[in-house]
Nucleic acid binder design. Structure first.
Lengths: 225, 225
DNA sequence: TTTCTATGTTAAGCTTGTGTTAAGTCTTTT
DNA sequence: AAAAGACTTAACACAAGCTTAACATAGAAA
């Protein structure tokens, strides 16, 4: 998987360039557009991780775009941050009501912008993905150190086992289907045999105890503490 | 379950009172303290959903508190928002680096504050809220966890039974014909015998009580709470 | 009432998904 | 190059869950 993708939407090209420059420098994949209407089409195509919208734009403003994105299935969960001139408190409220995830005020300082973007993206991965150490029960993981803790004891897991456990533990009790597991742990186009997942599940159970991963036949697996 | 809990930390009692008043009015459970050091102890005790920290405080400032929270297992995933006077951009950067989830600038306008807090909390619960339990009566289902709740008790159902129940419960009191059930639960081209649906209905009745699914002879079945 | 039909009930059989083990391939380390 | 570790595959076992068959019952129609 490539870098995280950011779509910038603002009617002023200089601002696009300024923001774009600073974000690409940080390794993000940046796409820009000056047209609010096009923004939605582009978003549907490139599926960005984050969309940064200027609130004030001619034709279609950020709030309208935001609302439309929130109503478009394929991209409704994309993170959205607004840009606005300082003091436009009215639009800030409206923005959050429209479903914004964050709010950035102009004038923009590069370091601040980058910190903020990182924070926003970190939230996303926190919510729905594998992130740093996750709580729950006596089994914990620390993604940074790549360690699994079982009742305080530190264990080192091979990559696939770790990623699989991390995925399951990222949302305890949620059922993950084999499809999803394959996609998230093995990655998109990989083709592996039927038993591959089972075998890894088995190894996890061997190490963590049989009760911590439950099978829902015909559906998938879930982690339980 | 109770309301969402917010812990406010600021050295100025007037601000605590002002924020506390506005947030309790919205139905949040608010706890306040003027001591940064105490804040962490309190957080460990009450496990708030969100902690709002003033950046500038004597003794122990918001950033230090934030760092310590992020290093304390039992509360490390708590949402944290910072309060700061406008223009303290340095601390804003430092705040995000320390692991803040949001940043609120003074002076604070009540409506804005509330919008913002809602947005922060929505993020957290966002993912869980989406398809959590579908409503109705003492029997609920949670598709994500693949669980059925009967008077609070958690039950695990086999796939077909679950899907059948989910279908019926998706529109309580609506009658679903056998044709529709076959198509929605078994899928298009599948051919199964006459008694298959009955048997599954029977199993549901066995587990949930006879009264919850009603037969309309010659028509179909419906769920009633 | 009798008859007919749709559904209820039960248990047995079959199917398919998953568990399990071990061996094989690929990778990394030394 | 050898050794160790990680991942995948193959083969078989097993059982939960699904379906079926056979018979029972109830309600509607004749």
């Amino acid at each position: 998987m490539g870098n995280e993708k950011i779509l910038l939407v603002d009617d002023e090209p200089e601002i696009l360039e300024f923001l774009g420059y600073n974000l690409s420098k940080e390794g993000y994949d940046v796409t820009t557009t000056t047209s609010g209407r096009k923004a939605i089409e582009i978003a549907k195509t490139i599926k960005p991780d984050l969309i940064i919208l200027d609130v004030m734009m001619p034709e279609m403003d950020g709030i309208e775009i935001c609302q439309e994105i929130r109503e478009t299935d394929s991209i409704k969960n994309t993170l959205i941050a607004f840009l606005s001139a300082r003091g436009e408190d009215y639009s800030q409220v409206a923005g959050f009501d429209a479903g914004a995830d964050d709010y950035i005020t102009k004038p923009i300082k590069p370091r601040l912008l980058v910190s903020r973007v990182k924070a926003i993206l970190r939230r996303k991965s926190g919510a729905e993905e594998i992130n740093v150490n996750e709580q729950e029960g006596s089994i914990k993981i620390d993604r940074e150190k790549y360690l699994v803790y079982k009742e305080g004891e530190e264990l080192t897991f091979p990559k696939k086992e770790f990623e699989l456990l991390a995925l399951l533990i990222s949302k305890p009790r949620k059922v993950f289907t084999r499809d999803v597991i394959l996609e998230r742990v093995w990655g998109g186009g990989v083709i592996v045999g039927d038993r591959t997942i089972d075998v890894h599940i088995r190894k996890l159970r061997e190490k963590l105890g049989d009760d911590c991963i439950k099978t829902i036949k015909g559906v998938g697996y879930k982690f339980e503490s």
